[in-house]
Computed example of a mutant assay.
Amino acid sequence: MKKLALFFAFVLVAGLSFAQNSNVRKADRALENGDLQEAKDLINEAAEHEKTINDPKTWYTRGTIYQAILNDEGYSEELVKEAAKSYDKVFSMVEEGDKYFTLSDLKVQELWGGFVNEGSEAYSAQKYEDAVKAFDKALLVIPDDTTATLYAGVASQQLQNNQDALKYYYRLLDLDYHSEDIYGSIISIERYGNEDMEKALEMTRIAKEKFPENDTFEKQEINLLINSGQVDVAKDRINDAIEKDPNNANLYFNLGYLYEQLEQPDKAEEAYLKAIEIDPDYLDANFNYAVYYYNKAADLLAKARDMDLQTYRKKGKALEKEAVGYLEKSKPYFEKALEIAPEELAVIETLQTVYAQLGENEKSEEMRKKAEKLGADGKAKMTDKK
């Protein structure tokens, strides 16, 4: 009798196990037949039973059912979360390469991709609020996704919702996603939006460490130090660095930039020239040095223009002659900048003006045509991207 009882107990357990596996199959069939509520009830029962709770097929099937309900009924945060939870359960059970891992991954990409496409279309139509909502949906599917996080941040910034933008941008840093543009946006929002100079400085210094070749963050730090009343700190930092590395052209360029911000043009000129002596092909140093003389000429020409006729007859010609001298001094450095960066529009347009003011009309016209062509090429590229 005891053996018989054990036999019946075994049959009962096996029957229950078969019933639960049968529930997974029935749920699959109900899904195929479009009976989504029945499919949901059956799969949830199987997902709670000890015999099928650890079967990846159960959770893959559950994910597809919730995804099908989502497609049928429309967006629901709960449905997205349940579908994503089911696929995540599969990933935790099996190794990459397993059949259900691959199938689940395809379904996740389908779900995530649909929301990202929705967000991209809304962004292109300048419906930035809708774009953010769509990218947030994508993040319910893959919370650590940097693509949707980035786009949500950019769309939030377009809405001038700076705090939300910061939330997404800082999240990117937490995800070990670093780009110069992201740091630039964070620094700008902290400085101008939140008026938090200390935080802006902190992020600028982190950006400097991440991107040591980028002069922009060095300049931003100098500017922030000046605007927060820490001019001596800025000077000391640069001068200490120069003492340790006297042949670093970038340091002299930053010193020149510092003096320019402090409206000490003579010291700025000296520092820029030193940077050029160390590195004759330093674009920014050549351009800034040329601009130094160009601005001197522009100031003199403006004074001459503002004179009344009597004063102009006495002093105007002398001012214009002095201005021409400064333009002549600026010209070789603008030309060197053009040689270094032949498609830099700012250099071309400024050089066009210099040539025109010096009466070198053929060269001025050449620069005008070059600028026009670059502008037309830029528009064509933008059209191609669309």
Results as ranks from 00 to 15, higher is better:
residue 220 Q to M: 14
residue 364 S to H: 02
residue 308 D to L: 10
residue 303 K to F: 02
residue 189 I to K: 03
residue 41 D to M: 12
residue 260 E to V: 01
residue 176 D to H: 10
residue 97 G to S: 11
residue 35 D to E: 15
residue 231 V to D: 08
residue 224 L to R: 08
residue 100 Y to M: 12
residue 342 P to G: 13
residue 298 A to E: 13
residue 119 G to H: 02
residue 133 K to W: 03
residue 53 I to M: 09
residue 311 T to A: 12
residue 97 G to M: 12
residue 108 V to C: 01
residue 241 A to E: 15
residue 265 P to F: 10
residue 210 K to D: 14
residue 172 L to F: 10
residue 239 N to Q: 13
residue 161 N to K: 14
residue 107 K to L: 02
residue 46 A to T: 04
residue 74 G to D: 12
residue 34 G to M: 05
residue 133 K to Q: 08
residue 269 E to A: 15
residue 214 N to R: 06
residue 216 T to F: 00
residue 51 K to R: 12
residue 377 D to W: 10
residue 331 K to W: 12
residue 360 E to F: 09
residue 253 F to M: 07
residue 185 S to R: 09
residue 22 S to D: 15
residue 382 M to S: 12
residue 183 Y to N: 08
residue 108 V to P: 00
residue 317 K to F: 07
residue 232 D to C: 14
residue 117 N to Y: 05
residue 379 K to F: 00
residue 105 D to Q: 14
residue 367 M to L: 11
residue 266 D to K: 07
residue 121 E to K: 15
residue 230 Q to F: 03
residue 239 N to C: 00
residue 148 A to F: 02
residue 74 G to N: 15
residue 364 S to K: 05
residue 374 L to E: 05
residue 45 E to I: 05
residue 57 K to W: 13
residue 374 L to S: 02
residue 92 S to R: 00
residue 4 L to S: 08
residue 18 F to T: 00
residue 257 Y to K: 07
residue 29 R to W: 07
residue 32 E to F: 07
residue 377 D to Y: 14
residue 384 D to K: 13
residue 303 K to Y: 07
residue 123 Y to L: 09
residue 79 L to Q: 04
residue 381 K to Y: 09
residue 360 E to Y: 07
residue 1 M to Y: 06
residue 48 E to N: 04
residue 100 Y to F: 13
residue 135 F to K: 02
residue 69 I to Q: 05
residue 135 F to I: 04
residue 317 K to E: 03
residue 85 K to A: 13
residue 72 D to T: 14
residue 119 G to L: 01
residue 251 L to G: 03
residue 306 D to W: 10
residue 204 T to V: 08
residue 26 K to Q: 12
residue 43 I to C: 00
residue 270 E to A: 13
residue 265 P to V: 11
residue 108 V to E: 02
residue 381 K to D: 08
residue 119 G to E: 03
residue 37 Q to I: 09
residue 308 D to W: 08
residue 83 A to W: 01
residue 166 L to C: 08
residue 114 G to Q: 15
residue 164 D to F: 04
residue 217 F to D: 06
